[in-house]
Structures are given as C-alpha cells and as structure tokens.
C-alpha cells in the first residue's frame, strides 16, 4: 500500500499537503516504469524555476531514463517556492526514496481543495487494473 498521507494524480504524481504548502513528487510505480526492461537508469530531471505559477495538470518538468521520457504534471495549483536541488546530482534518490527525500518541488497553494485528486486506495486499484 502506498502512503495515504497524500493524494495522487492519474499520471502518477503525488501531492502531500501541509497547511497551504504542498510537496510534489512522482510515485515509485512511474519511476519503475521509466527504467524497466531496458536496464536504463534515470539520467535527467528537468525542474522549474522558483516563482513559476502552475495550474492543475500543467507540465512543470520532465524526467528521462536512457530510453524513456515522461512529462511531470502538476497535481495542484500554486507557485513554486522551492525546488529539490539534490535531485539534479543524485537522481537515484527518486528510486530509493520517492516518498520523502525524492520530493521534486514545493508549492504554495492558491487553491487548497484536493478533491480533483485520487486517494492512495483508488490509485492502487487503478494500477491493479492496468496490469
């Protein structure tokens, strides 16, 4: 079972909200998919500048393995106030700890409702259906 202290987007991004701040990251499933089959490591992660405002679903970056690439979509609406600088030099964090150390951006929310996102249970069942 994936962490239920946060909510999910169908495109595999998670958002963990504390007050009006949300941490955004990518689920272990998505990272595994990017790397599977072709023994490919993650090789690149492009994250936004701080100060950028994002809509729900807006592409805020992309993540690349040797032979796959995926857009990162924002699960929330707000302003990027911090970017996880550690990722750039240590992409392996994303695989080893996608839920805590592997957060990507910190967003100051302009809309707090998370009703458009799915909870961990629904996310799990979505994955179950896909496989």
């Amino acid at each position: 079972m994936r962490p239920d202290d946060r909510k999910y987007l169908e495109t595999h991004e998670w958002a963990k909200v504390t007050g009006d701040i949300a941490l955004i990251g990518l689920t272990d499933f998505a990272i595994h998919e990017l790397c599977s089959g072709n023994e490919g490591d993650l090789v690149y992660c492009d994250l936004p500048e701080t100060g950028r405002t994002l809509e729900v679903g807006e592409t805020f970056g992309e993540i690349e393995s040797v032979k796959a690439v995926a857009d990162l979509s924002s699960p929330v609406e707000g302003e990027v106030i911090e970017v996880n600088e550690a990722i750039e030099d240590h992409l392996e964090i994303l695989s080893s700890d996608p839920w805590e150390q592997g957060w990507m951006v910190k967003i100051k929310l302009t809309k707090k409702s998370m009703d458009h996102l799915i909870d961990a249970e629904t996310y799990e069942s979505m994955l179950a259906k896909q496989s």
Binding site: V43, Y44, E64, S65, V66, K67, A68, V69
Partner: peptide
C-alpha cells in the same frame, strides 16, 4: 541522448 529523438519523445 536518445530521449530527444522521435522514437522516444
């Protein structure tokens, strides 16, 4: 840098 190319991106 194959992720730039059409067969992936």
């Amino acid at each position: 840098f194959q992720a730039r190319e059409q067969h992936i991106r």
